[in-house]
């Protein structure tokens, strides 16, 4: 009897093992159809840019980028995305190595970033633009009157941070009279400006207006702008085109209603009306830059 019972137990064990193996195989083989399926989406945001992408307390993020990301993810039934801090220079790398699913961190859409990796690009898809801005400068209030146009920056020391289009732009031959210093991120540049170690901070005007809102004694010079307009997009690694298009459709809806204006005003109240109008994307721009390997042609006719 003992032998018979042992045999039956062994059979049950064997069957259970096979069932468990089959289940685990099935789970392993079933490809993750969408990054939104399990509701766990990891979003990278900046921690030191008040107004756009900011982490006032550990794990608590706010700003226009964060608001837009939350709104779009809610539209695709992801109610509680996980936000974590990301440095500008690490945005693409963190997506490429799988640490993050999305990046919403004043990330400019560029042809180089959109291009597939096998063509020498960074292999990212963008949902955007959700805002557009141009590069400008932030100076100390007491020096504000000294800056009227680009020539006033000749010989001055301007702080930029690594991995940004702003840093790239000032390397161009048109600005060879401007001296630049590169810091790790925005916070270091603001600190350096306050401590008078640099004359100005240069990055996108929207970011600078965000600082101006919380940093007393610093001011954006509206008349000084550089380079091509920067269009912000929410980035993801290529290979999720369907998810990308769902977010793009959600962005179109978001921009067409009043929500965009409300959220922009709440997060970036210091941005002048004209700049806000320029920042607002059109549906054509969203179509031209979202979920593509290269920017599409202008809509004509």
């Amino acid at each position: 009897m003992t032998v018979a019972r042992t045999g039956a137990r062994a059979r049950v064990l064997r069957t259970a093992t096979v069932v468990a193996l089959l289940c685990s195989l099935a789970a392993g083989c079933s490809s993750k159809e969408s990054m939104f399926d399990d509701g766990k989406v990891h979003v990278g945001a900046k921690g030191d840019q008040p107004g756009t992408s900011f982490e006032p307390h550990d794990g608590e993020f706010n700003g226009f980028d964060v608001t837009v990301a939350r709104e779009l993810l809610t539209a695709v039934d992801v109610d509680s995305p996980y936000f974590s801090g990301v440095l500008s220079k690490n945005r693409a790398a963190n997506l490429q190595n799988g640490d993050l699913d999305l990046v919403a961190a004043t990330f400019s859409i560029t042809p180089q970033r959109m291009k597939p990796q096998d063509e020498g690009g960074e292999g990212l898809d963008f949902v955007g633009p959700y805002a557009s801005t141009q590069q400008g400068i932030l100076v100390r209030e007491e020096d504000y009157g000294q800056y009227k146009d680009h020539d006033d920056l000749d010989g001055r020391l301007v702080c930029v941070w690594e991995g940004t289009t702003s840093a790239q732009e000032l390397k161009g031959p048109a600005y060879d009279k401007i001296r630049t210093v590169e810091e790790d991120d925005a916070g270091y540049c603001i600190k350096a400006l306050r401590e008078k170690r640099v004359d100005a901070v240069s990055t996108d005007q929207l970011i600078l207006y965000g600082f101006m809102n919380v940093e007393r004694g610093l001011r954006v010079v509206p008349g000084i702008r550089f380079g091509e307009p920067n269009d912000y997009g929410i980035a993801m690694l290529k290979g999720h085109r369907e998810d990308c298009e769902r977010l793009r459709d959600a962005l179109r809806t978001y921009v067409n209603g009043n929500d965009w204006d409300r959220d922009f005003e709440n997060n970036l109240p210091k941005v002048p009306k004209a700049d806000r109008d320029e920042a607002r994307p059109t549906p054509e721009e969203i179509d031209a830059l979202s979920c593509r390997d290269k920017p599409s042609n202008a809509a004509v006719g």
């Binding site: 400019s108 859409i109 560029t110 042809p111 180089q112 291009k115 289009t165 790239q168 732009e169 161009g172 380079g227 091509e228 307009p229 920067n230 269009d231 054509e284 721009e285 031209a288 830059l289 290269k294 920017p295 599409s296 042609n297 202008a298 809509a299 004509v300």
Partner: peptide, 16 residues
Amino acid sequence: TVDNEPSTGTCVHKTT
């Protein structure tokens, strides 16, 4: 016609 500097913002969709 392409952006002169592909690592900065793009104007392809605003250009004719």
